[in-house]
Design a protein around this nucleic acid. Structure first.
Lengths: 110, 110
DNA sequence: CAGCATCCCGGAGGATACTG
DNA sequence: CAGTATCCTCCGGGATGCTG
């Protein structure tokens, strides 16, 4: 229940926090990437296999963005052929339970 | 924690549910509208006052979409001048706690 | 008061080919 | 293997004006 003041003005919603949250999950793919990786570690190729309908460009761009947002970590192994692994950062893991609940919202509106 | 099978394949993420959830909160305004209205009842004009940076067209369009999605109810009063009131549907109210938590996600990535 | 109609632009998102 | 580079399409979102 949202508390109201005596003038019946709704409790202020923090638009800043909303927009920050929307940045994390915005677009067609970010939330999917986050939920897909979960507690695991993924290579570029594994994402491609799991999300075949997502283009390489989109995948590369979204991964880069999520790294910049400190949602994902990117680990490069000095091997030949190169190996790059992605996993959630601490912040990402903290957000995971909430983001998983969004699937319940999807279920609600079936 | 996500359970895995013995082949280390991650538990399937339900892409259908994700996309349905994303429809509900997609765009720059839907989540904001939902959180703003909360348990209250809003008139068109009140939205405009609370969200002055949102154009009328966007507001009208998003309200209509949210009504079609069964997130909002629209009640028209046969008065002159016309009065139209919006509030969350039962489903909308059920989703509200989860959607509110998204602000915590925004807070995490400050 | 509470919208809809019309026009427009920028950027999200896609297809394909190439590279360290 | 893990990405860039380039090009292109489409539509979200804004501005403005009109209407029941």
């Amino acid at each position: 229940m949202v508390p109201k003041n005596r003038n019946n003005v709704p409790t202020p919603v923090d638009f800043t926090l909303i927009s920050k949250a929307l940045v994390i999950i915005s677009g067609k793919w970010r939330l999917t990437i986050i939920l897909l990786i979960g507690e695991d570690t993924f290579r570029f190729r594994q994402f491609r296999e799991q999300l075949p309908s997502m283009s390489e460009k989109m995948l590369a761009g979204e991964l880069k963005a999520l790294v910049a947002l400190d949602v994902l970590t990117r680990t490069v192994y000095a091997e030949v052929p190169p190996r790059v692994e992605y996993s959630l950062t601490k912040k990402g893991r903290l957000a995971l339970p909430i983001l998983r609940q969004l699937q319940q919202v999807g279920h609600l509106f079936n």
